[in-house]
């Protein structure tokens, strides 16, 4: 949690690419597409309304293209997401602490990008997600987080002239982190399971695909001066279902914004 009146903003650039992808769960490649690369930037801001309630906003801009074939590059603002993160319970366990956090996330497309293409930036779908987190914090700087969530997604009107359902997803996420006043680092594992959907195939609308994956990643944050820090991340795909076996890098800056009073309860 941010704490009442504390706010951060971050800008991050990323690159995610793959040449292999899963059709259903079968790895394959396509010489007509080559390497698919998505590059982009995200703007992230979080603020503590109270000691136990944060507001978070995230805005990504993405450009996706392939290095073979003739598919045009897709570029634009993707989906804005806004979240409320609430800590209803914080238990002191001796000198350690266990927080129970719940979050609700709403995301919706910010532009009229094309969702039903082999090379695209997103699915043009409005979604609502509920998450529950258990966050265990030690005095030695270590912390451990386990998270589960359900992502409910709506329908998408594709340019072919009909609506398709974007499958809901269940997400599990776990993280081990360590930090002090100058450094922060974590490793994480994410597992997403589609609740329905189709496999990639001729004529099958892409937003209807049952997409799932298991990804592993790490993040490092270094405090550089005053209220500025540098963040870098790396992630890879262990298992995929109708998504690419993507490798992802990101680097960015985090700035602690001037404090405000928050809401005193």
């Amino acid at each position: 949690m941010q704490g009442a009146g504390n706010s951060v903003a971050a800008v991050s650039a990323f690159q995610e690419s793959y040449s292999y992808y899963a059709v259903g769960e079968r790895p394959t490649d396509n010489t007509g597409l080559g390497v698919i690369t998505a590059r982009g930037a995200t703007l992230y801001a979080a603020s503590g309304v109270t000691d136990f309630l944060d507001v978070i906003v995230n805005v990504p801009w993405i450009s996706t293209g392939s290095d073979a074939g003739f598919w045009e590059t897709q570029t634009g603002l993707q989906d804005v997401s806004a979240a409320l993160r609430l800590r209803p319970l914080s238990l002191a366990l001796g000198s350690q602490r266990l927080d129970v956090v719940v979050a609700g996330v709403y995301s919706t497309p910010m532009s009229d990008y094309v969702p039903d293409l082999p090379v695209t930036i997103g699915h043009q779908v409005t979604a609502v997600e509920g998450r529950v987190l258990l966050h265990y914090v030690t005095t030695s700087g270590w912390s451990f987080t386990g998270q589960g969530g359900y992502l409910g997604r709506g329908t998408v009107t594709v340019d072919r002239g009909f609506d398709v359902d974007a499958p809901d997803q269940v997400e599990f996420w776990t993280k081990a982190a360590w930090g002090d006043s100058d450094w922060y680092g974590d490793v994480w594992l994410q597992h997403v399971v589609p609740q329905s959907g189709t496999n990639i195939g001729p004529g099958v609308p892409f937003p209807s695909n049952a997409q799932g994956f298991t990804r592993i990643g790490a993040t490092v944050v270094r405090h550089v001066f005053a209220d500025w820090s540098v963040v870098a991340g790396l992630a890879g795909t262990l298992d995929a279902r109708n998504v690419g076996y993507a490798t992802r890098f990101n680097i960015g800056f985090v700035h602690r914004l001037p404090s405000w009073s928050g809401v005193q309860l």
């Binding site: 992808y21 059709v23 396509n30 090379v119 695209t120 930036i121 195939g201």
Partner: peptide
């Protein structure tokens, strides 16, 4: 970023 793709024939 979930970048799906096709052209595989199933």
């Amino acid at each position: 970023v979930f970048v799906a793709l096709c052209l595989v024939l199933t």
